[in-house]
Amino acid sequence: MISVENISKSFGEVTAVDNVSLQAPDGKITALLGANGAGKTTSMRMIYALIKPEGGQVLVDGINTHEDPVAARARMGVLPDARGLYKRLTARENIVYFGRLQGMKEAKIKERCEELVDRLGMGAFIDRKTEGFSQGQRVKVAIARALIHDPQNILLDEPTNGLDVMSTRAIRRFLKEQRSLGKCILFSSHVMQEVSAVCDEITIIDGGRIVASGSEDQLRDKTGSENLEDAFVSLVGGEKVV
C-alpha cells in the first residue's frame, strides 16, 4: 500500500512535479498515466525515495520514505527508468547481487531466483553473461532482481517500453499474477492500451499535476468519451498545437 500526499519537486526554475497525491492500494494495479515529460519519472523517483520531495510525504505500508528510506526500500521492488545490468556478470549473478544487498539468506535467494526464472521464462539465458541480451531479456532480468526479495509493493517505470508483443504479454501476465497474490502494484506509462489492458486504477498526470483519477470506466463517463485515449486527451486539455 502506497500513499502519496502532496509531493512537489522543482529543478531550478522548472517545477517538474506540483502537489501530487495518489493512492495505490494492495491487490490492485494502479497506473500513473501521462505524456512524455508530464512528471512521471520524477514522481516515481520521489515515491521510491531516490530523491527528496519538497514538502509532502510518501508512506509505504505506513513507513515514511524520507524518515526511514532503508526500511521503506526493503518493502519496495522497483524497476526504475534506468535499468542497466552488469554485462560482465551473468543474469543470475545480477539477480543474486541484489538479493544479497536486500539482506536475504543465500538459500532463500536461490529458491526465489528459481521461482522468478520460472515465472518470467528466463531459463534459456539465466546463466549467460548479460552482454548482448535483447531488450526483452534485459527487462526480465531487471524485474527479477528488483523483486528478488518478494516485496509487498511493486513499482515500475514504463515497464514495457521498447518491448515486443511476446515480452509485453509475459510481463503483463506476471503483473496480474502478482496482483492476485495481493501485492500493491504502481506503474507509470504513457501507453493507453497498456494501461487499459492491465490497470484497475488510473491517475492521470499532466504538467506535473494530477488532473484526474479513477477506474477506466469512471474516467470515460466523466468525459463522455468512448475510449481511454479520448478521455485522456480531453482531461489534459485537448490536443495542443505543437
Partner: peptide, 17 residues
C-alpha cells in the same frame, strides 16, 4: 561507468545506505 550504464539508480534502490 556505472552511471553511464544506468545501473547506479537500481543499485541505490536497495535497502543499503
Amino acid at each position: 561507468g556505472e552511471k553511464e550504464r544506468k545501473s547506479l539508480e537500481p543499485l541505490f534502490l536497495n535497502p543499503v545506505k
